[in-house]
Amino acid sequence: MTALASHAAAPTGARSRLRRLADSERFLAWALLAPAVVFIVALVGFPFVLALLYSVTNVTVGTQSASFVGLAKFRQAMESPAFWGAVRNTFLFTLVSQALVIVLAGTLARLLMMEFRGKWFVRLLILLPWVAPISLGSIGWLWIFDSIYSVINWTLRHIGIFGPETWPIWLGQPTLAMASIITVHVWRMLPLAAIIMLAGFSGIPKDIHDAAAIDGAGFWRRELQIILPLVLPIVLVAVLFGIVFTATDMIVIFIITRGGPFDSTQVLASLAYYTGIDGGDLAEGAAISLFLFPLLVAIAYLMLRLARRTEVT
């Protein structure tokens, strides 16, 4: 008994020291957070600070030295028509694709709530675009929209909607190109949004649905007055994420249209890339990429506050 007690009271060796460390919350908190912190500082914080620095200089890809030029690069960017076109496209691209994603993801999530045979397979199919590498998917879409081999056109022509010489050039006409880009982006964002919404819908207790059914609520009343308000906080998070992600992303555009035709699908992110890397004007590219930053911070703040306010229970 005494031997046991003294042994427990005076632990020795490296093992017990480790165990003491593992019990210390302060140590654990830091140990577990450290990788994430390193990651964020290296891959987000550092480039962000670099962009801030670049945007107020006249640095280019080739030069070693750079001098401070104040806000001149911002002014230079705002004076070019391509910039304002990109701003317009960014808004159009973000708003339309997010609206579509929310409606489609909401519908999809509701369908996935139902019980039917082969549900697991449908779930798998829906998650596929998210799991598959985006570049691979986009190349598939490139083929779908191809000016000669497009399967859409082939189908439409065989149904008899288009004659032999009149089919649309999906990626060659400004409006169609934008629509194509939005389609691909919606296809890509849909799985995650649907899964997030599915979580929101599943979080509503069964009794609430039953109570609404007994109280006599019809389809629209149930959707709009019960279900929508209850999933709103989680939908807002999905929307926030979607907006920030869409407004800062360029992979789809880079692979499918490269901003064309005539800059009609050029968004700020892609313009910043083409100006800064391809065009070599690092400073102006940095200035362009920073343009949306205050706006996105404001949106994020607003959405999070709204989500907090509508929080239930």
Partner: peptide
């Protein structure tokens, strides 16, 4: 009336 009351929380 449900055991959980099932009031609409919002």
């Amino acid at each position: 009336v449900f055991q959980s009351y099932a009031l609409y929380p919002h």
